[in-house]
Design a protein around this nucleic acid. Structure first.
Lengths: 237, 237
DNA sequence: CTAATAGTGTCTCTCAGACAGTATATC
DNA sequence: GATATACTGTCTGAGAGACACTATTAG
Protein backbone atom coordinates (compact mmCIF):
# COMPACT_ATOMS: atom_id res chain seq x y z
CA UNK A 1 0.00 0.00 0.00
CA UNK A 2 1.48 3.29 -1.04
CA UNK A 3 -0.38 5.00 1.74
CA UNK A 4 1.17 3.00 4.54
CA UNK A 5 4.59 3.16 2.91
CA UNK A 6 4.52 6.94 2.91
CA UNK A 7 3.21 7.04 6.43
CA UNK A 8 5.90 4.67 7.63
CA UNK A 9 8.48 7.39 7.12
CA UNK A 10 6.75 9.65 9.63
CA UNK A 11 7.57 9.62 13.34
CA UNK A 12 5.00 7.45 15.08
CA UNK A 13 3.28 7.60 18.44
CA UNK A 14 0.35 5.96 20.10
CA UNK A 15 -2.74 8.14 20.37
CA UNK A 16 -5.18 7.67 23.22
CA UNK A 17 -8.29 9.35 24.53
CA UNK A 18 -8.83 9.92 28.23
CA UNK A 19 -12.16 10.89 29.69
CA UNK A 20 -13.09 13.27 32.46
CA UNK A 21 -16.66 12.17 33.16
CA UNK A 22 -18.36 14.54 35.56
CA UNK A 23 -21.73 14.38 37.26
CA UNK A 24 -23.34 15.88 40.33
CA UNK A 25 -24.23 13.60 43.20
CA UNK A 26 -25.35 14.54 46.64
CA UNK A 27 -24.51 18.16 46.06
CA UNK A 28 -20.96 17.37 45.02
CA UNK A 29 -19.16 17.37 41.71
CA UNK A 30 -18.03 13.79 41.07
CA UNK A 31 -15.74 12.18 38.54
CA UNK A 32 -15.70 8.69 37.12
CA UNK A 33 -12.53 6.73 37.80
CA UNK A 34 -11.51 3.17 37.15
CA UNK A 35 -9.16 0.95 39.08
CA UNK A 36 -6.57 -0.33 36.66
CA UNK A 37 -6.45 -4.10 36.22
CA UNK A 38 -3.28 -4.17 34.15
CA UNK A 39 0.15 -2.58 34.32
CA UNK A 40 1.35 0.07 34.36
CA UNK A 41 -0.11 1.55 37.54
CA UNK A 42 -1.98 -1.70 38.17
CA UNK A 43 -4.41 -1.31 41.05
CA UNK A 44 -4.22 2.49 40.89
CA UNK A 45 -7.09 4.80 40.10
CA UNK A 46 -7.15 6.40 36.67
CA UNK A 47 -9.46 8.18 34.30
CA UNK A 48 -11.17 5.89 31.83
CA UNK A 49 -9.63 5.91 28.40
CA UNK A 50 -7.99 3.87 25.71
CA UNK A 51 -6.19 3.91 22.43
CA UNK A 52 -7.68 5.30 19.27
CA UNK A 53 -8.19 2.65 16.60
CA UNK A 54 -6.40 3.06 13.27
CA UNK A 55 -9.41 4.31 11.34
CA UNK A 56 -11.38 5.82 14.16
CA UNK A 57 -12.18 9.47 14.68
CA UNK A 58 -11.05 10.95 17.99
CA UNK A 59 -14.55 11.78 19.14
CA UNK A 60 -15.76 8.33 18.10
CA UNK A 61 -13.03 6.81 20.24
CA UNK A 62 -14.17 8.90 23.18
CA UNK A 63 -17.77 7.73 22.78
CA UNK A 64 -16.60 4.14 22.40
CA UNK A 65 -14.58 4.26 25.61
CA UNK A 66 -17.49 5.93 27.33
CA UNK A 67 -19.64 2.94 26.41
CA UNK A 68 -17.02 0.29 27.11
CA UNK A 69 -15.66 1.54 30.39
CA UNK A 70 -18.64 3.35 31.83
CA UNK A 71 -21.64 1.85 30.08
CA UNK A 72 -22.76 5.31 29.02
CA UNK A 73 -24.59 5.92 25.78
CA UNK A 74 -24.01 8.93 23.57
CA UNK A 75 -27.31 10.52 24.50
CA UNK A 76 -26.57 10.34 28.21
CA UNK A 77 -23.75 12.87 28.16
CA UNK A 78 -22.51 16.09 26.65
CA UNK A 79 -19.01 15.58 25.27
CA UNK A 80 -16.38 18.11 24.30
CA UNK A 81 -12.71 17.96 23.60
CA UNK A 82 -10.67 19.25 26.52
CA UNK A 83 -6.96 19.38 25.74
CA UNK A 84 -4.20 17.12 24.49
CA UNK A 85 -1.45 15.90 26.80
CA UNK A 86 1.70 14.66 25.14
CA UNK A 87 4.74 15.11 27.36
CA UNK A 88 7.32 12.51 26.28
CA UNK A 89 7.55 10.74 29.63
CA UNK A 90 3.89 10.68 30.60
CA UNK A 91 3.42 6.95 29.89
CA UNK A 92 6.09 4.39 30.81
CA UNK A 93 5.10 2.19 27.87
CA UNK A 94 6.41 4.69 25.37
CA UNK A 95 5.26 7.80 23.62
CA UNK A 96 1.53 8.19 24.12
CA UNK A 97 -0.26 11.35 23.12
CA UNK A 98 -3.59 11.55 24.88
CA UNK A 99 -6.51 13.64 23.72
CA UNK A 100 -8.59 14.38 26.78
CA UNK A 101 -12.36 14.71 26.52
CA UNK A 102 -14.79 16.18 29.01
CA UNK A 103 -18.14 14.42 29.43
CA UNK A 104 -20.98 15.66 31.59
CA UNK A 105 -24.25 13.99 32.45
CA UNK A 106 -27.09 13.92 34.92
CA UNK A 107 -27.52 11.22 37.53
CA UNK A 108 -25.13 8.84 35.85
CA UNK A 109 -25.36 5.23 37.03
CA UNK A 110 -22.61 3.60 39.02
CA UNK A 111 -20.84 1.60 36.33
CA UNK A 112 -19.13 -1.75 36.59
CA UNK A 113 -15.55 -2.25 35.57
CA UNK A 114 -14.87 -3.07 31.96
CA UNK A 115 -12.35 -5.45 30.49
CA UNK A 116 -9.25 -3.74 31.82
CA UNK A 117 -10.69 -2.18 34.94
CA UNK A 118 -11.17 -3.80 38.32
CA UNK A 119 -13.89 -1.36 39.19
CA UNK A 120 -15.40 1.92 38.15
CA UNK A 121 -17.00 4.49 40.41
CA UNK A 122 -17.96 8.12 40.85
CA UNK A 123 -16.14 9.93 43.62
CA UNK A 124 -16.04 13.63 44.53
CA UNK A 125 -13.39 15.43 42.54
CA UNK A 126 -12.09 16.96 45.74
CA UNK A 127 -10.95 13.49 46.82
CA UNK A 128 -8.57 13.34 43.90
CA UNK A 129 -7.49 16.95 43.67
CA UNK A 130 -6.99 17.92 47.28
CA UNK A 131 -4.15 15.64 48.17
CA UNK A 132 -0.69 15.46 46.76
CA UNK A 133 -0.47 11.68 47.02
CA UNK A 134 -2.06 8.80 48.85
CA UNK A 135 -4.30 5.86 48.06
CA UNK A 136 -6.44 7.94 45.70
CA UNK A 137 -3.54 9.31 43.68
CA UNK A 138 -4.34 9.07 40.01
CA UNK A 139 -2.14 7.25 37.51
CA UNK A 140 -0.13 8.92 34.76
CA UNK A 141 -0.77 12.67 34.55
CA UNK A 142 -4.46 12.13 35.13
CA UNK A 143 -4.59 14.51 38.08
CA UNK A 144 -3.62 17.35 35.76
CA UNK A 145 -6.17 16.20 33.20
CA UNK A 146 -8.88 16.08 35.86
CA UNK A 147 -7.94 19.54 37.10
CA UNK A 148 -8.18 20.89 33.57
CA UNK A 149 -11.58 19.29 33.09
CA UNK A 150 -12.99 20.65 36.33
CA UNK A 151 -11.70 24.12 35.59
CA UNK A 152 -13.18 24.02 32.10
CA UNK A 153 -16.56 22.99 33.46
CA UNK A 154 -16.48 25.71 36.10
CA UNK A 155 -15.57 28.38 33.60
CA UNK A 156 -18.14 27.33 31.02
CA UNK A 157 -20.96 27.55 33.54
CA UNK A 158 -20.40 31.28 33.59
CA UNK A 159 -20.94 32.15 29.98
CA UNK A 160 -22.68 29.15 28.45
CA UNK A 161 -25.65 27.04 29.36
CA UNK A 162 -23.37 24.09 30.05
CA UNK A 163 -24.92 23.62 33.47
CA UNK A 164 -27.91 21.92 31.91
CA UNK A 165 -25.58 19.14 30.76
CA UNK A 166 -25.70 18.03 34.40
CA UNK A 167 -29.51 18.08 34.43
CA UNK A 168 -32.05 15.59 33.08
CA UNK A 169 -33.87 16.51 29.84
CA UNK A 170 -36.52 18.34 31.83
CA UNK A 171 -35.49 20.14 34.97
CA UNK A 172 -36.49 22.89 37.35
CA UNK A 173 -34.65 26.10 38.08
CA UNK A 174 -33.89 24.76 41.53
CA UNK A 175 -32.21 21.69 40.08
CA UNK A 176 -30.13 23.86 37.78
CA UNK A 177 -29.15 26.02 40.71
CA UNK A 178 -28.07 22.92 42.63
CA UNK A 179 -25.72 22.15 39.73
CA UNK A 180 -24.12 25.57 39.92
CA UNK A 181 -23.76 25.30 43.66
CA UNK A 182 -22.12 21.88 43.40
CA UNK A 183 -19.75 22.72 40.56
CA UNK A 184 -18.69 26.07 41.97
CA UNK A 185 -18.97 24.95 45.60
CA UNK A 186 -20.86 28.05 46.62
CA UNK A 187 -24.38 28.87 47.73
CA UNK A 188 -26.49 31.09 45.52
CA UNK A 189 -29.53 33.20 46.27
CA UNK A 190 -32.50 31.24 44.89
CA UNK A 191 -34.48 34.35 44.00
CA UNK A 192 -31.71 36.11 42.11
CA UNK A 193 -30.63 32.95 40.37
CA UNK A 194 -34.16 32.35 39.21
CA UNK A 195 -34.45 35.78 37.71
CA UNK A 196 -31.06 35.72 36.03
CA UNK A 197 -31.57 32.38 34.41
CA UNK A 198 -35.12 32.98 33.25
CA UNK A 199 -34.20 36.41 31.89
CA UNK A 200 -31.27 35.14 29.82
CA UNK A 201 -32.80 35.31 26.37
CA UNK A 202 -33.41 32.04 24.58
CA UNK A 203 -31.84 29.90 27.24
CA UNK A 204 -34.57 28.14 29.17
CA UNK A 205 -37.57 26.83 27.25
CA UNK A 206 -40.61 26.14 29.44
CA UNK A 207 -42.19 22.79 28.74
CA UNK A 208 -45.42 23.73 30.44
CA UNK A 209 -45.09 20.94 32.96
CA UNK A 210 -44.74 21.34 36.68
CA UNK A 211 -43.31 19.09 39.29
CA UNK A 212 -42.80 18.83 42.98
CA UNK A 213 -39.84 16.61 43.60
CA UNK A 214 -39.06 17.50 47.17
CA UNK A 215 -41.98 19.04 48.94
CA UNK A 216 -42.87 22.66 48.57
CA UNK A 217 -44.55 24.53 45.79
CA UNK A 218 -44.34 22.74 42.42
CA UNK A 219 -41.77 24.18 40.04
CA UNK A 220 -42.02 24.83 36.33
CA UNK A 221 -40.10 22.45 34.08
CA UNK A 222 -37.70 23.63 31.39
CA UNK A 223 -35.61 22.29 28.57
CA UNK A 224 -32.37 23.89 27.35
CA UNK A 225 -29.41 23.41 25.06
CA UNK A 226 -26.04 23.12 26.85
CA UNK A 227 -24.31 24.72 23.89
CA UNK A 228 -26.10 28.06 23.73
CA UNK A 229 -24.18 31.05 25.06
CA UNK A 230 -25.58 32.81 28.11
CA UNK A 231 -26.36 36.49 27.65
CA UNK A 232 -25.74 38.01 30.03
CA UNK A 233 -23.39 35.51 31.68
CA UNK A 234 -23.81 34.26 35.23
CA UNK A 235 -20.58 35.32 36.87
CA UNK A 236 -18.89 33.88 39.89
CA UNK A 237 -17.93 36.40 42.55
CA UNK B 1 -5.82 2.35 28.70
CA UNK B 2 -7.47 -0.47 26.90
CA UNK B 3 -5.11 -2.57 24.85
CA UNK B 4 -3.06 -4.86 27.03
CA UNK B 5 -0.09 -5.26 24.74
CA UNK B 6 3.49 -4.12 24.79
CA UNK B 7 4.35 -0.69 23.49
CA UNK B 8 5.42 -2.08 20.15
CA UNK B 9 1.92 -3.40 19.59
CA UNK B 10 0.15 -0.11 20.24
CA UNK B 11 -1.64 1.44 17.29
CA UNK B 12 0.63 4.06 15.85
CA UNK B 13 0.00 7.33 14.11
CA UNK B 14 1.93 10.42 13.22
CA UNK B 15 1.50 13.43 15.49
CA UNK B 16 1.89 16.94 14.14
CA UNK B 17 1.45 20.46 15.37
CA UNK B 18 -0.21 23.13 13.26
CA UNK B 19 -0.03 26.80 14.07
CA UNK B 20 -2.60 29.55 13.82
CA UNK B 21 -0.37 32.62 14.08
CA UNK B 22 -2.43 35.77 14.38
CA UNK B 23 -1.43 39.40 14.39
CA UNK B 24 -3.10 42.72 13.69
CA UNK B 25 -1.99 44.69 10.66
CA UNK B 26 -3.59 47.75 9.20
CA UNK B 27 -6.65 47.34 11.35
CA UNK B 28 -7.22 43.77 10.25
CA UNK B 29 -6.74 40.43 11.90
CA UNK B 30 -4.14 38.54 9.87
CA UNK B 31 -2.92 34.97 9.85
CA UNK B 32 0.42 33.52 8.85
CA UNK B 33 0.27 31.03 5.99
CA UNK B 34 2.93 29.22 4.01
CA UNK B 35 2.88 28.05 0.45
CA UNK B 36 3.69 24.37 0.45
CA UNK B 37 6.84 23.38 -1.41
CA UNK B 38 6.29 19.65 -1.19
CA UNK B 39 3.36 17.27 -1.75
CA UNK B 40 0.68 16.81 -0.75
CA UNK B 41 -1.09 20.06 -1.62
CA UNK B 42 2.13 21.33 -3.22
CA UNK B 43 1.79 24.99 -4.12
CA UNK B 44 -1.28 25.42 -1.91
CA UNK B 45 -1.55 27.67 1.10
CA UNK B 46 -1.46 26.02 4.49
CA UNK B 47 -0.91 26.82 8.13
CA UNK B 48 2.67 26.37 9.26
CA UNK B 49 3.30 23.17 11.12
CA UNK B 50 5.22 19.95 11.23
CA UNK B 51 5.66 16.65 12.91
CA UNK B 52 6.46 16.25 16.56
CA UNK B 53 9.85 14.65 17.15
CA UNK B 54 10.02 11.36 19.07
CA UNK B 55 11.16 12.89 22.35
CA UNK B 56 9.75 16.34 21.99
CA UNK B 57 6.99 17.92 24.04
CA UNK B 58 4.00 19.19 22.06
CA UNK B 59 4.49 22.78 23.10
CA UNK B 60 8.19 22.55 22.32
CA UNK B 61 7.33 21.33 18.84
CA UNK B 62 5.02 24.30 18.38
CA UNK B 63 7.76 26.74 19.39
CA UNK B 64 10.24 24.96 17.13
CA UNK B 65 7.97 25.22 14.11
CA UNK B 66 7.30 28.83 14.99
CA UNK B 67 11.02 29.50 14.76
CA UNK B 68 11.67 27.33 11.70
CA UNK B 69 8.76 28.35 9.54
CA UNK B 70 8.12 31.87 10.71
CA UNK B 71 11.36 33.00 12.29
CA UNK B 72 9.52 33.90 15.48
CA UNK B 73 11.14 33.63 18.88
CA UNK B 74 9.35 32.39 21.96
CA UNK B 75 9.22 35.85 23.50
CA UNK B 76 7.55 37.36 20.44
CA UNK B 77 4.27 35.51 20.84
CA UNK B 78 1.73 34.21 23.31
CA UNK B 79 1.08 30.54 22.63
CA UNK B 80 -1.76 28.33 23.76
CA UNK B 81 -3.05 24.96 22.72
CA UNK B 82 -6.15 25.24 20.59
CA UNK B 83 -7.64 21.85 19.77
CA UNK B 84 -6.60 18.54 18.27
CA UNK B 85 -7.78 17.45 14.84
CA UNK B 86 -7.60 13.76 14.09
CA UNK B 87 -10.21 12.69 11.56
CA UNK B 88 -8.89 9.56 9.83
CA UNK B 89 -8.89 11.00 6.32
CA UNK B 90 -7.56 14.47 7.01
CA UNK B 91 -4.10 13.80 5.57
CA UNK B 92 -3.59 11.74 2.37
CA UNK B 93 -0.24 10.45 3.63
CA UNK B 94 -1.90 8.39 6.34
CA UNK B 95 -3.16 8.86 9.85
CA UNK B 96 -1.95 12.18 11.16
CA UNK B 97 -3.27 13.59 14.41
CA UNK B 98 -2.59 17.30 14.56
CA UNK B 99 -2.46 19.32 17.74
CA UNK B 100 -3.31 22.88 16.77
CA UNK B 101 -1.76 25.81 18.64
CA UNK B 102 -2.79 29.43 18.64
CA UNK B 103 -0.02 32.03 18.63
CA UNK B 104 -0.57 35.76 18.90
CA UNK B 105 1.92 38.57 18.59
CA UNK B 106 2.30 42.28 17.90
CA UNK B 107 3.64 43.63 14.65
CA UNK B 108 5.12 40.34 13.56
CA UNK B 109 7.65 40.56 10.72
CA UNK B 110 6.92 39.21 7.27
CA UNK B 111 8.76 35.91 7.36
CA UNK B 112 10.53 34.06 4.59
CA UNK B 113 9.72 30.52 3.64
CA UNK B 114 11.47 27.75 5.49
CA UNK B 115 12.71 24.43 4.23
CA UNK B 116 9.37 23.08 3.12
CA UNK B 117 7.65 26.34 2.27
CA UNK B 118 7.91 28.35 -0.92
CA UNK B 119 6.84 31.48 0.90
CA UNK B 120 5.30 32.68 4.11
CA UNK B 121 3.10 35.72 4.58
CA UNK B 122 0.45 37.37 6.73
CA UNK B 123 -2.90 37.84 5.08
CA UNK B 124 -6.26 38.92 6.51
CA UNK B 125 -8.14 35.97 7.94
CA UNK B 126 -11.21 37.05 6.00
CA UNK B 127 -9.39 36.15 2.80
CA UNK B 128 -9.21 32.54 3.87
CA UNK B 129 -12.48 32.19 5.70
CA UNK B 130 -14.91 34.03 3.48
CA UNK B 131 -14.70 31.88 0.39
CA UNK B 132 -15.57 28.28 -0.05
CA UNK B 133 -12.76 27.57 -2.52
CA UNK B 134 -10.45 29.39 -4.89
CA UNK B 135 -6.78 30.22 -5.09
CA UNK B 136 -6.55 30.93 -1.38
CA UNK B 137 -8.18 27.68 -0.28
CA UNK B 138 -6.18 26.17 2.56
CA UNK B 139 -4.74 22.66 2.42
CA UNK B 140 -5.94 19.77 4.58
CA UNK B 141 -8.57 20.81 7.15
CA UNK B 142 -6.68 24.00 7.87
CA UNK B 143 -9.65 26.21 7.16
CA UNK B 144 -11.47 24.59 10.08
CA UNK B 145 -8.38 24.96 12.25
CA UNK B 146 -8.09 28.63 11.35
CA UNK B 147 -11.76 29.20 12.07
CA UNK B 148 -11.36 27.59 15.49
CA UNK B 149 -8.34 29.75 16.24
CA UNK B 150 -10.05 32.98 15.24
CA UNK B 151 -13.12 32.12 17.26
CA UNK B 152 -10.99 31.28 20.29
CA UNK B 153 -9.16 34.58 20.06
CA UNK B 154 -12.41 36.52 19.68
CA UNK B 155 -13.98 34.80 22.67
CA UNK B 156 -10.98 35.20 24.93
CA UNK B 157 -10.82 38.94 24.36
CA UNK B 158 -14.08 39.16 26.24
CA UNK B 159 -13.13 37.67 29.54
CA UNK B 160 -9.32 37.65 29.60
CA UNK B 161 -6.64 40.18 28.88
CA UNK B 162 -5.61 38.25 25.81
CA UNK B 163 -5.86 41.38 23.68
CA UNK B 164 -2.54 42.58 25.00
CA UNK B 165 -0.92 39.58 23.29
CA UNK B 166 -1.41 41.56 20.09
CA UNK B 167 0.27 44.63 21.58
CA UNK B 168 3.95 45.47 22.10
CA UNK B 169 5.31 45.21 25.66
CA UNK B 170 4.28 48.78 26.35
CA UNK B 171 1.13 50.09 24.73
CA UNK B 172 -1.55 52.72 25.01
CA UNK B 173 -5.23 52.22 25.63
CA UNK B 174 -5.86 53.38 22.09
CA UNK B 175 -3.62 50.67 20.69
CA UNK B 176 -5.39 48.05 22.76
CA UNK B 177 -8.71 49.34 21.53
CA UNK B 178 -7.49 49.04 17.96
CA UNK B 179 -6.80 45.37 18.64
CA UNK B 180 -10.33 44.78 19.88
CA UNK B 181 -11.76 46.62 16.89
CA UNK B 182 -9.67 44.57 14.46
CA UNK B 183 -10.29 41.19 16.03
CA UNK B 184 -14.01 41.73 16.53
CA UNK B 185 -14.41 43.83 13.40
CA UNK B 186 -16.42 46.47 15.20
CA UNK B 187 -15.91 50.07 16.29
CA UNK B 188 -15.86 50.84 19.97
CA UNK B 189 -16.46 54.05 21.86
CA UNK B 190 -13.00 55.32 22.89
CA UNK B 191 -14.23 56.91 26.09
CA UNK B 192 -16.14 53.90 27.39
CA UNK B 193 -13.43 51.48 26.37
CA UNK B 194 -10.89 53.54 28.24
CA UNK B 195 -12.91 53.50 31.42
CA UNK B 196 -13.74 49.81 31.25
CA UNK B 197 -10.21 48.71 30.68
CA UNK B 198 -8.62 50.99 33.25
CA UNK B 199 -11.24 50.05 35.85
CA UNK B 200 -10.72 46.30 35.44
CA UNK B 201 -8.80 45.56 38.62
CA UNK B 202 -5.21 44.49 38.24
CA UNK B 203 -5.28 44.39 34.47
CA UNK B 204 -3.37 47.39 33.15
CA UNK B 205 -0.20 48.46 34.94
CA UNK B 206 0.88 52.03 34.17
CA UNK B 207 4.56 52.29 33.33
CA UNK B 208 4.62 56.02 33.94
CA UNK B 209 5.69 56.75 30.39
CA UNK B 210 3.73 58.66 27.82
CA UNK B 211 3.84 58.66 24.09
CA UNK B 212 2.34 60.31 21.10
CA UNK B 213 2.50 57.95 18.20
CA UNK B 214 0.03 59.54 15.83
CA UNK B 215 -0.59 63.15 16.63
CA UNK B 216 -2.93 64.26 19.33
CA UNK B 217 -2.51 64.30 23.05
CA UNK B 218 0.15 61.89 24.33
CA UNK B 219 -1.23 58.73 25.90
CA UNK B 220 -0.17 56.89 29.02
CA UNK B 221 1.74 53.65 28.52
CA UNK B 222 0.76 50.38 30.17
CA UNK B 223 1.98 46.86 30.60
CA UNK B 224 -0.30 43.84 31.14
CA UNK B 225 -0.37 40.08 31.34
CA UNK B 226 -2.38 38.37 28.57
CA UNK B 227 -3.30 35.57 30.94
CA UNK B 228 -5.07 37.49 33.70
CA UNK B 229 -8.86 37.23 33.71
CA UNK B 230 -10.81 40.42 33.08
CA UNK B 231 -13.23 41.39 35.84
CA UNK B 232 -15.64 42.54 34.76
CA UNK B 233 -15.39 41.19 31.20
CA UNK B 234 -15.59 43.36 28.11
CA UNK B 235 -18.54 41.90 26.26
CA UNK B 236 -19.34 42.04 22.59
CA UNK B 237 -22.84 43.24 21.76
C1' DC C 1 -50.86 24.67 61.74
C1' DT C 2 -45.33 24.37 60.27
C1' DA C 3 -41.79 23.49 57.03
C1' DA C 4 -40.11 23.71 52.60
C1' DT C 5 -39.51 25.17 48.03
C1' DA C 6 -41.08 28.41 44.06
C1' DG C 7 -41.37 32.66 42.47
C1' DT C 8 -42.13 38.14 42.64
C1' DG C 9 -41.23 42.97 44.22
C1' DT C 10 -38.26 46.36 45.49
C1' DC C 11 -34.27 48.82 46.80
C1' DT C 12 -29.45 50.03 46.05
C1' DC C 13 -25.16 49.87 43.68
C1' DT C 14 -22.39 49.12 39.89
C1' DC C 15 -21.51 49.22 35.30
C1' DA C 16 -22.45 49.79 30.13
C1' DG C 17 -23.52 52.91 26.46
C1' DA C 18 -24.28 57.54 24.68
C1' DC C 19 -22.23 61.64 24.28
C1' DA C 20 -20.73 66.33 25.88
C1' DG C 21 -16.81 68.51 27.40
C1' DT C 22 -11.81 69.27 28.50
C1' DA C 23 -6.59 68.45 27.78
C1' DT C 24 -2.59 68.33 24.96
C1' DA C 25 -0.22 67.13 21.14
C1' DT C 26 0.85 68.04 15.54
C1' DC C 27 0.14 70.78 11.55
C1' DG D 1 -5.94 78.73 14.30
C1' DA D 2 -7.82 73.42 12.84
C1' DT D 3 -7.55 68.72 13.79
C1' DA D 4 -6.61 64.57 16.10
C1' DT D 5 -6.25 61.80 19.93
C1' DA D 6 -6.55 61.22 25.14
C1' DC D 7 -9.10 61.41 28.65
C1' DT D 8 -13.18 62.94 32.25
C1' DG D 9 -18.02 63.98 33.51
C1' DT D 10 -22.68 62.99 33.40
C1' DC D 11 -26.92 60.96 32.42
C1' DT D 12 -29.76 56.84 31.68
C1' DG D 13 -30.97 52.21 31.70
C1' DA D 14 -30.00 47.24 32.73
C1' DG D 15 -28.58 43.96 35.71
C1' DA D 16 -26.63 42.01 40.37
C1' DG D 17 -27.13 41.23 45.14
C1' DA D 18 -29.76 41.63 49.39
C1' DC D 19 -33.84 40.48 51.22
C1' DA D 20 -38.91 41.09 52.23
C1' DC D 21 -42.88 39.09 50.60
C1' DT D 22 -46.38 35.99 48.43
C1' DA D 23 -47.74 31.22 46.46
C1' DT D 24 -48.35 26.38 46.76
C1' DT D 25 -47.20 22.06 48.02
C1' DA D 26 -46.30 17.99 51.96
C1' DG D 27 -47.02 16.39 56.39
Amino acid sequence: MAKSKAAAALPQSAVAVDLVVLTVRGGELCVLTVRRGIPPYQGKFALPGGFVLPDEDLEAAAYRELAEEAGLKKRAVTLEQLRTFGAPGRDPRGRVVSVAYLAMGAGLPDPRGGSDALSAQFEPVSEYLSRRAGPLALAFDHKAILAAGVERARAKLEYTGLGVAFCPPEFTVGELRAVYEAVWDVTLDPANFHRKVTNASGFLVPTGGRTSRGGGRPAALYRADPLVPLHPPIMRA
